[in-house]
Design a binder for these strands. Structure first.
Length: 266
DNA sequence: TACAATGTTTTAAG
DNA sequence: CCTTAAAACATTGT
C-alpha cells in the first residue's frame, strides 16, 4: 500500500499520541521487521519515553521520543504496513509487529507481509539513516537539473524502473510512477537516457504534480485522487485511458506490473 | 492451483 | 568501485 502520500497519512495517524508517554510496548521479537535493529533495545528504550514528534521522507518515517536522551524510532511500511490507533484494552494480534501502549490509546504498526522495517537509535544526534537522505521531491533541492543527472547516471534501464529508485525519487512507488509517465506522455519502457529535453521537462512537472496532488488527497485524509487520474483505471480489467478513451496495456517492467496508454505515451 | 500484490535487499554478473 | 537484472523475502487474496 504505502507510497509517499499513504506514508504521510499513516504518519499523522500516530499524531494522536503526541506529548504522551509510552507506558509499555509489545512486539514479535523474531519478526523480520526487526532485522535492522535489536528488539531488546526497543523494550529497553521505548517504555517511559514521551512521543514528541514525527517526520516523513519519501517512504521513510521517523518518530522521535524523549526519555533521559532522545530516542529515534525509524519505520518503513514495506508493501502492506499500516499505522493506526486502537482503543485502550487492545492487545497485539498476529500481524501487529510493534505496539506502543499509552494511557489513553494504543499505537499499532501492522504488516502482514513483513516487508517493512524498524530501526532504533538513542542519543542527541540524528542517526545516519535519517541524516543521509536524498533531496525530497517536493523540496527546493529537487530540481530539473538533479533529475537530468539522475537519468543520465541510470540511462540504460527503463524510465519506469528508474522512477522507482528511492535515491532519485524518494517516495515514488508503482502506482505513482505509472501515473507520472501517463501524465508526461512517456512510454514506460523507454531507456531513461533516451528522453529529450522537452520530455524531461514534462517528466519533472508530472513528478511534482502527481506528488502534490496525492498529498492533497490520499495524504490528507486517504481520499482518492481526482477522477481523471489513471489511478482509477489501473487496477480494473478492461480499464481505459482517461485522456483518450483507448484501452490500457499491462506489461511487466523492472519486475513490476506496469499500466500504460499506448494511445498517449510514446 | 498458481500467480499477483502500492517494496526493498541480496546476489551475481557485466 | 559502479550499474543492472533477477531472485528472495512472508502472507493473503483471487
Amino acid at each position: 500500500m504505502p507510497e509517499l502520500a499513504e506514508v504521510e497519512f499513516f504518519r499523522k495517524e500516530w499524531n494522536a499520541g503526541l506529548g504522551e508517554d509510552v507506558t509499555r510496548i509489545a512486539l514479535h521479537p523474531r519478526s523480520r521487521l526487526f532485522r535492522r535493529c535489536d528488539p531488546h533495545a526497543l523494550q529497553r528504550h521505548l517504555p517511559g519515553a514521551r512521543l514528541e514528534g514525527s517526520d516523513a521522507h519519501g517512504k521513510k518515517l521517523l518518530f522521535y521520543l524523549q526519555r533521559e536522551s532522545k530516542v529515534w524510532l525509524g519505520l518503513h511500511l514495506g508493501m502492506t504496513g499500516k499505522l493506526w490507533v486502537a482503543p485502550v484494552g487492545y492487545e497485539a494480534q498476529k500481524h501487529d509487529h510493534l505496539v506502543l501502549f499509552q494511557r489513553d490509546r494504543v499505537l499499532v504498526f501492522s504488516d502482514s507481509r513483513q516487508f517493512g522495517g524498524v530501526e532504533l537509535a538513542v542519543g542527541e544526534d540524528a542517526p545516519a539513516w535519517w541524516r543521509e537522505l536524498p533531496p525530497a521531491i517536493l523540496s527546493p533541492e529537487f530540481t530539473e537539473e538533479h533529475l537530468t543527472r539522475f537519468l543520465q547516471r541510470h540511462r540504460r534501464p527503463a524510465i519506469k524502473g528508474v522512477l522507482l529508485m528511492q535515491e532519485g525519487f524518494p517516495g515514488l512507488g508503482n502506482w505513482m510512477a505509472d501515473e507520472i509517465l501517463w501524465r508526461a506522455g512517456i512510454k514506460p519502457v523507454r531507456p531513461a537516457g533516451s528522453l529529450s529535453a522537452g520530455e524531461r521537462e514534462a517528466l519533472f512537472q508530472a513528478v511534482r504534480f502527481v506528488c502534490r496532488g496525492a498529498m492533497k488527497t490520499v495524504g490528507k485524509d486517504f481520499r482518492d485522487p481526482p477522477a481523471n487520474w489513471l489511478f482509477h483505471q489501473r487496477w480494473k480489467k478492461g480499464g481505459c485511458c482517461p485522456a483518450t478513451g483507448r484501452p490500457l496495456l499491462y506489461d511487466r517492467i523492472a519486475g513490476r506490473t506496469t499500466c500504460w496508454s499506448p494511445a498517449r505515451q510514446h
